[in-house]
Write a protein that binds this DNA or RNA. Sequence first.
DNA 1: TTAGATGCAAATAGTTTGCATTTGT
DNA 2: ACAAATGCAAACTATTTGCATCTAA
Lengths: 148, 148
Amino acid sequence: MLEESNSRIERLRNTGHKLTNARLTVLRALENHDGHMTSTDVLEAVTRMDPEIGRASVFRALDLFTQLSIIRPTYIDSSVTPTYVLMPGGHHHHIICTNCNRVIEFEECKLDQLEAELERKLHVRLTGHLLEFYGLCESCQDRAKSDS
Amino acid sequence: MLEESNSRIERLRNTGHKLTNARLTVLRALENHDGHMTSTDVLEAVTRMDPEIGRASVFRALDLFTQLSIIRPTYIDSSVTPTYVLMPGGHHHHIICTNCNRVIEFEECKLDQLEAELERKLHVRLTGHLLEFYGLCESCQDRAKSDS
DNA sequence: TTAGATGCAAATAGTTTGCATTTGT
DNA sequence: ACAAATGCAAACTATTTGCATCTAA
């Protein structure tokens, strides 16, 4: 979505960061894969798009985007490599199967009210959130049944 | 809390895992620090409690506990080392300051209803969740003001 | 013009592996 | 008794660092 992308670029600009080739390429890589990518995935994708870009810059861009709540690292597959998720509009929600690591995304969350409440009570200024549920997906439940 | 601890031990037992010294020590380390610990913290604490326990077993225990929704790894300080949070009752909630990385925990979440709804609609069986808000804590907001 | 960002390659550090041995049930 | 889990140390791999150079604003 072009508009989403522009708003991310705006956020970079507004916070006083330069719109460099490395950053824009990392952003495009994330957007192309629309959501979940490990750092290794990002590294590969970026290198494919522009081999001149160095590893370090990719990691630096991921850190920066995280700080700006554009993305958020989370553990899904291995415990080594973080998976980065885009947080359009500042939020993201998914279910992770604790057995097969399948990720099921969902849209709905009724957290606006809670967010406002926390801002008021705790004097924080919130820009985003991630909500993860853990459990078993349909097929892993079935397998658990037949295993017993 | 003793009762919480017993229920974790029960969960281990019920899922057919042995109650080994390594696992129980890792669990105790996590409980002693009541919440947030990086893998390095856990490693140090466990070694202090019992130098015989090997690194590998600590990592294996952390992986197992994650699978059982007893703990959940999340990124807080560095992007390298995961921070593990205990999820008593299967859930945990906190706010992370994107500037200074301070963590503010809060109890309330009104997600029971959403959880039930997701189980019904998506045919999943959920055992826990993590909710993270991102933004600026009070002091980082103040600093942002005076910097401008 | 110049502070900020980059690319490189070496250094670091966290995590996993394979396997012989031990242990919980 | 025996499958499951452990401890060890080596191997692996992801990430960071320092610095000279470059570039967006």
